[in-house]
Structure formats: C-alpha cells, structure tokens
Amino acid sequence: MPSKSKFKEVMRRDRVFDFMVPGGRHAVIAKQLDISHDIVLYVEGISVSFDGFKALNDLNLYINNGELRCIIGPNGAGKTTMMDVITGKTKPDAGTAFFGQTMDLTAMSEYEIAAAGIGRKFQKPTIFPEHTVFENLELAMHCDKRVWTTLFARLSSAQQDRILEIVDTIMLAAQINLQAKNLSHGQKQWLEIGMLLMQNPQLLLVDEPIAGMTQQETERTAELLTSLAGQHSVVVVEHDMEFVRSIAKTVTVLHEGHVLAEGSMDEVQNNQQVIEVYLGE
C-alpha cells in the first residue's frame, strides 16, 4: 500500500518531477544514491562568478558510473571551482548539479555531500598533521559522524581490518604509527587518497594527485587510480599530460569556465581549438 501511494505521488500528472523543475533549488535530498541511469554526476549550466570574473560559465559535465575521467585545462580554467561546486564549498549563481538522479548538490552542505558519497582530494595535500596515519584513516572512515556517537565510538575489528587493508593499498604500512606531518609529500598525497577510500565514496574528485611525486610513485598512483575506476567513479584534474595519457579513456578540456572539448586523448590533442588554447593563437 505505501509503495502504491508513493508511486501515485510520483506519477501525478499535475506537476513535473521535482528534479526537473527549472532552476530547481529546492532540496531534493534523497538518502539513497540513485544511479539507475548509469550516470553518477550531472553538472548542468553551472555558472559561478567572483567579483565579475566568471570562473565557471555554463559548464556542462556528465560522469558515468565507474568511469575514470581526466579534466585538463590551462590555469584559471575553473577546474578547482568546479570541484568546489560539486563538493558544496561554493554555491553556483546558476545551474544545477545532481549526484545520481536524486541528490541536489547545490542544496547540500559539505558534510552532507561527503556522507552521500563524494570524496575530494585537495590540490595541496591536506591531511591531519598531528594524527598518525592510522588515525587519519580512522577519522575519514565511513560511519555515523554525529557528535554524540563519535564521543563513544569504538573501533570494531571489521573497521580495523578495513583500515589495515587501505594502509596496504596506499603502501604506508610501515608508517602506520607515524604522525602524518612526518610523511614525504608523495606519501601525504597517498594518505589523502587513502582517506578518500575510507569514506567509501561513489565518486572521487582528485585534484593534481601526482604533484611532487617521483616517477615510481607516479606510476604507482596511476595504477591505483585505474584500479579504483569501475567500483568508483574517479575524476582527476591534472596538468601532467603524460600522466593523463597513461590513465585516461576520456578527457575533458576546460577553458574559461567552459567545456572546450571532450573525447579520447588523441581526439582532444588533435582538436584545433584545444591546440589554440594550449599553444596560443
């Protein structure tokens, strides 16, 4: 009976679906991620301006479930602003961003978005410096993050196993009890990726993951990111073209807050507009 009435509610003919209402800012925050259409992220017509400067200008972007997408673009193309919009840090002036079919990201706050399943790695590795690697991962773990439950939280053995598993994945097993501030730059980057994984996110936004990494570390990161795709959707913003070539199936080029081109690496590199933007007129 309740499901029948719910169905009737959805099928009412006197109004359209909530998420299709134009300029729909009303919170459509479902608890469950709905990726029945196989698209995990819809970014449509997003514009953001700071003091008249248009950081994003009618940006449209769709990320498929399980996809690994690389986003490239010159400085100031709006890559970081785009991530800010998706993670709720910046509210757009216009446009919509949906996580799955139902979750309106523009109406959610950072912690809600994180809990819903979007993890973000910052450009500058941001970890908790005074905590050990273990604690960093513990803090990032997907669980009830309300104050009171946190006060009395105890690690279950399943959770411990999960942490140890991730520690191996990010190859920091030897440093597990080391304070994170003592890690090398590359290790910090990995720790941050590990923290993302602890959140069990459906979508990972990774901003410049290989900055400051050695060749070997870079290769390992490429391997890691590729292995994540499939189970998770991964969006990587990166400057290093060689790295992008090594991991990307689909590349999106941003320029002046707008998508300039999208396609495989070869297509994009042969695109006349892209060449102009990168090499100058």
Binding site: E110, H131, E135, L139, L151, F152
Partner: peptide, 21 residues
Amino acid sequence: SKLGRVTVAIRDAEDRARFVG
C-alpha cells in the same frame, strides 16, 4: 575519545574535516 581526535583534526585542517564528512 574519537571526538577528541576529531576536534584536533578540526583544529589542524578544518576543511579536510568538513570534506571527510
């Protein structure tokens, strides 16, 4: 408690704590 570790995390990297959820 874990709460204490979270507050220190907030002290050291507030944005990270927020994006972690």
